[in-house]
Design a protein around this nucleic acid. Structure first.
Length: 417
DNA sequence: TCTGGGGTCCTAGGACCC
DNA sequence: TCTGGGGTCCTAGGACCC
């Protein structure tokens, strides 16, 4: 049996832990650059404020209703996420952390009272971390998603078990096909055209026809709706790519500034890379113009540079990035966003040695980077950094409603419990 | 005036091989 | 007139997710 743990209105719930005055009020958390709404309290949903709505379009309505908007504070959310996940892990063993606010678990079908266990975990997370969680229980992951959305609409003890075939059919009959996990904007009209509007109609669709028209992923979805598990808990592996990118508050046309900002992105990405004990062989750099100003969306460009073998050294990635940036930068343009992606990532334990290098990772480079990471961990981020970042402006992303760094006091706060 | 960021998987098609 | 049939590997792009 699969369990899906899904935090309610996660970012808003995180902010509310430290701001009791936000309870019962419309609250939204904004994306980077204070652009779009990415998390809403129930009161904000009721206004209504849509997911992904641009802030400037809903600002007035929110204020009029006595609501509050906050910039996102990802350090805080990841800290709280780690605490939630660790409680789930204590109760369920190996879990799959599916996103910052969701996790799947798989438990034996017999011998335990699933409902009772779920209610206990839910109460524990609420008491010890302060985050409300909905829990869906079903024979497949796809049905778990359906169950958890039922759980969310409950008034209390937000746990829903979906195992009885008759009840599954009844539920799917009232469930729109576009709300099923794995069915997005493009697939919905195609399915509708074939007369498939409800999840029940999809459940009853012939597998061969689905596979022919939509491919393997949707075929799996249909089998999962029929209670046949096709997707299992996935174990955590090394990431296949690491991206760091931002939209800017003001468009930038100065090459040196862009270079310095993107050097900072490269630094961040390389830290993440080393934190998972991995190395990367390629870096792609990209620039984008303002997609809302041009008729044909955003232009810009991207350029992929190979490092000639696995690498962990920030300086070498920055040099490669600079080369790539020169290829795509145009002095006539002004840029609204930029970023880099590290690719060809391998776990450092199982590195393939390149024909041309004696050792895949030069030991002196590894040591230098370890020292750098340690220094910054001990003395605070950006104690030691690369000169290439020096020319970056202090602030180039809008974040006008950022909550304070509660995380520093978080440690003492948990000791209270 | 203001419109996010970070991922995964699958597929189709081309290059190349026997 | 008629022009094999597999394979594999790679990449770009599409579709989805939160």
């Amino acid at each position: 049996m699969f369990f899906l743990f899904d935090c309610d209105n996660f970012f808003v719930s995180c902010e509310r832990i430290f701001r009791p005055d936000l309870k019962k009020r419309p609250v939204v958390v904004l994306s980077s650059n204070d652009g779009c709404v990415v998390s809403r309290s129930y009161e904000a949903k009721a206004l209504p404020i849509a997911m992904g709505a641009p802030y400037f379009k809903i600002e007035k309505m929110l204020r009029g209703a006595g609501g509050v908007a906050l910039s996102s504070n990802f350090e805080l959310y990841s800290d709280i996420s780690r605490r939630v996940m660790s409680l789930i892990r204590q109760n369920c063993g190996a879990i799959q952390v599916y996103s910052v606010d969701e996790a799947f678990a798989r438990l034996p079908d017999t011998g335990i009272d699933h409902f009772q266990l779920a209610v206990c975990i839910r109460h524990q997370i609420l008491k010890e971390v302060g985050i409300p969680v909905s829990i869906g229980i079903a024979p497949t992951k796809t049905l778990c998603k359906v169950a958890s959305s039922l759980a969310k609409s409950k008034a209390f003890d937000k746990v829903e078990i979906l195992t009885d075939p008759q009840r599954i059919r009844q539920t799917l009959k009232n469930f729109e096909v576009e709300n099923i996990w794995g069915i997005g904007r493009r697939l919905t009209p195609k399915l509708n055209f074939l007369g498939i509007f409800t999840a029940l109609e999809l459940q009853n669709s012939p597998l061969k026809m689905i596979r022919r028209n939509f491919g393997i992923p949707l075929e799996k979805t249909v089998m999962e709706l029929n209670g046949r598990p096709c997707l299992d808990i996935e174990r955590e592996e090394t990431a296949q790519s690491i991206t760091v990118s931002r939209s800017f508050e003001h468009e930038i046309s100065n090459f040196e500034q862009l270079e310095a900002i993107i050097a900072g992105f490269t630094d961040t990405a390389c830290r993440r890379l080393r934190a998972q004990n991995a190395a990367a062989g390629e870096i792609a750099v990209f620039l984008k113009t303002n997609r809302f100003r041009n008729q044909n969306g955003s232009s810009g460009g991207s350029y992929l540079v190979s490092l000639g073998g696995p690498c962990v050294h920030t300086g070498r990635f920055i040099a490669a990035m600079k080369y790539g940036l020169k290829q795509i930068f145009s002095p006539q343009e002004t840029y609204k966003s930029a970023g880099i992606t590290l690719l060809a990532i391998e776990s450092a334990d199982a590195l393939q040695t390149s024909l041309f290098e004696k050792s895949a990772l030069p030991p002196e480079e590894q040591k230098l980077m370890q020292t750098l990471d340690k220094l910054n961990a001990k003395l605070g981020a950006r104690t030691v950094f690369f000169a290439a970042q020096a020319l970056a402006p202090q602030k180039f992303v809008r974040s006008n409603f950022h909550s304070p760094a509660y995380t520093t006091s978080w440690q003492s706060l948990v000791n209270v419990h």
